[in-house]
């Protein structure tokens, strides 16, 4: 006989009661401080000036950052833009800069998720970069300290796609036959934060392509570009085998086949 635990109503009710019981006991029995992450127990705000004493290479440029735009001064300590993400810094300053007294969003996305709640949900989807499991961090694609948080936008010397192609070099090109959607950015087709669809695609089917490739058609026809594709969605996606597999670009096929 195999034990197969199931998540049924009884499990939830009894489990819940047991859990709440434990919590009640803990409330009356202990007084040790428990704080929800990413907060620092016992720390107070010190303001950006305190941070600049050691981290001037970061704070010098912070005023140009996307995050600086929403930062406001607080109380007697002035701007607390740094501590909005890194947690209150008094213990960190007092300890001379130890790691355990400050929140490091580069190690855990929890600090970012405090405001970017929608991204927390996306990173928990089945198809997402490995941020929720800690193998990647938000700062690999975003610069929270300088300029636009989305790297490569605005007047930056870099381009937005470089964040992606730094790792995904096979999709970088250049190719002899380009897919100009790449110029609009990888995010034209992919959601890098996560998607319900495989490969983080914004849509699992031909709609992904038809957003840009629809053409006026006679009744019963579905023109994409210069050809009727009415029968093709029956079989599968536009990029399925035998069709436009070289969707990031091709060196032999004008129609982006491999």
């Amino acid at each position: 006989m195999t034990f197969r635990p199931r998540l049924n109503k009884n499990t939830l009710v009894f489990g819940g009661v047991a859990a709440w019981g434990l919590l009640l006991i803990s409330c009356v029995a202990v007084n040790r401080t428990m704080l929800a992450p990413p907060y620092i127990a016992g720390a107070n705000l010190v303001g950006n000036k305190g941070c600049a004493e050691c981290h001037s290479e970061v704070t010098d440029h912070f005023s140009s950052s996307t995050h600086a735009k929403v930062a406001l001064a607080e109380g007697n300590v002035g701007s607390t833009g740094c501590e909005a993400c890194h947690g209150a810094g008094s213990l960190h300053v007092k300890a001379g800069g130890t790691r355990s007294t400050i929140v490091n969003p580069g190690k855990s996305p929890e600090a970012c998720f405090q405001c970017h709640l929608d991204k927390r949900g996306q990173f928990n989807l089945p198809n997402a970069h490995a941020v929720a499991t800690g193998q990647m961090s938000c700062s690999e694609c975003h610069d929270p300290h300088r300029g636009n948080a989305i790297k490569g936008t605005g007047a930056s010397l870099h381009t937005q796609n470089e964040s992606c192609t730094e790792c995904h070099t096979a999709q970088k090109g250049p190719f002899i036959f380009k897919h100009n959607a790449m110029k609009e950015g990888c995010t034209s087709c992919h959601n890098p934060h996560g998607s319900v669809n495989q490969k983080m695609l914004n849509a699992p089917d031909s709609n992904l392509c038809l957003q840009c490739h629809a053409t006026g058609s006679s009744p019963g026809q579905l023109f994409a570009g210069g050809r009727d594709h009415a029968g093709n969605p029956v079989n599968g996606s536009c990029w399925a085998a035998g069709c436009h597999e070289g969707i990031h670009g091709s060196n032999v096929s004008h129609a982006l086949r491999y």
Partner: peptide, 9 residues
């Protein structure tokens, strides 16, 4: 069969 002009994509 193709119709030139503008469509909602």
């Amino acid at each position: 069969g193709v119709i030139n002009g503008t469509v909602d994509g």
